[in-house]
């Protein structure tokens, strides 16, 4: 067996968390629920038809974690293991609802054929073909404080909410929740290229919305 997991070294601190869970430590359990549930809801939402069903799927996944933790041996990251349980439940639930698996089929295509920036923004002929007609402006620096710039965050939030489901999940996990590309690929079963294309389309569209808001450029 030379599976990648065989050589896997768990992140520091994971063994203590797993031990605490096995011991029945409530604070550890609540902490994990608080940390992972928002991402779990987002992932579940790509497989099932509604927010309400996604909530049930996440709940069921946590019950699966509780009943399975005794058998968890730490050969993968706890996070990976939890999201695998979640994905299995969400997939089954989605199939029962008659929804097709979003990633292999639709996910790959969700980002195709869209330009990051409106082609009208570039010259289409001559020596400078492909160069900006109206160049992006320099945006003001963001303030450090979390509270200032709230409207801009609101614009980003609305733009993310308007994205197709899989793009929305990828950008949420990567940029809102700060996951690595590898973690996202594992949780969503995406190829490296797919993950990048989806992230690219998502970020491009959110930037475009911000530009519309900050510079009054039509989107």
């Amino acid at each position: 067996m030379d599976a990648p997991e065989a050589r896997y070294a768990p992140p520091p601190g994971q063994a203590a968390i797993v031990e605490a869970l096995k011991r029945g430590d409530e604070r550890t359990f609540s902490g994990l629920v608080a940390e992972f549930s928002p991402s779990m809801l987002r992932v579940a939402r790509t497989y099932v038809s509604s927010r309400a069903v996604a909530e049930e799927v996440v709940q069921e996944a946590w019950l699966g974690v509780i009943s399975g933790i005794g058998r968890f041996e730490g050969r993968s990251a706890l996070k990976t293991w939890i999201f695998r349980i979640l994905a299995n439940i969400a997939k089954t639930r989605g199939e029962r609802e008659g929804r097709s698996v979003p990633f292999s089929s639709v996910g790959g295509r969700e980002g195709e054929g869209e330009a990051a920036v409106d082609p009208d923004r570039f010259l289409d002929a001559g020596r400078w073909a492909g160069h900006w007609t109206s160049a992006p402006s320099r945006w003001p620096e963001l303030p450090e404080e979390q509270l200032v710039g709230r409207e801009k965050v609101g614009v980003v939030e609305a733009a993310i909410a308007a994205l197709p489901e899989v793009q929305r999940t990828v950008i949420t996990l990567r940029d809102v929740e700060g996951w690595s590309s590898e973690e996202v690929r594992n949780a969503l079963d995406l190829s490296e290229t797919n993950q990048r294309v989806l992230l690219h389309r998502a970020r491009s569209k959110v930037r475009k919305s911000l530009e519309g808001y900050l510079d009054g450029v039509q989107t």
């Binding site: 608080a34 909530e55 709940q59 945006w139 993310i160 940029d175 930037r207 530009e211």
Partner: peptide, 21 residues
């Protein structure tokens, strides 16, 4: 500027809070 704008987009996304249970 475009590259900066994308970086700023990523930073602003990091300040969004998402739906919870």
């Amino acid at each position: 500027n475009y590259l900066d704008q994308i970086r700023m987009t990523i930073e602003l996304a990091g300040r969004v809070t998402i739906d919870d249970l």
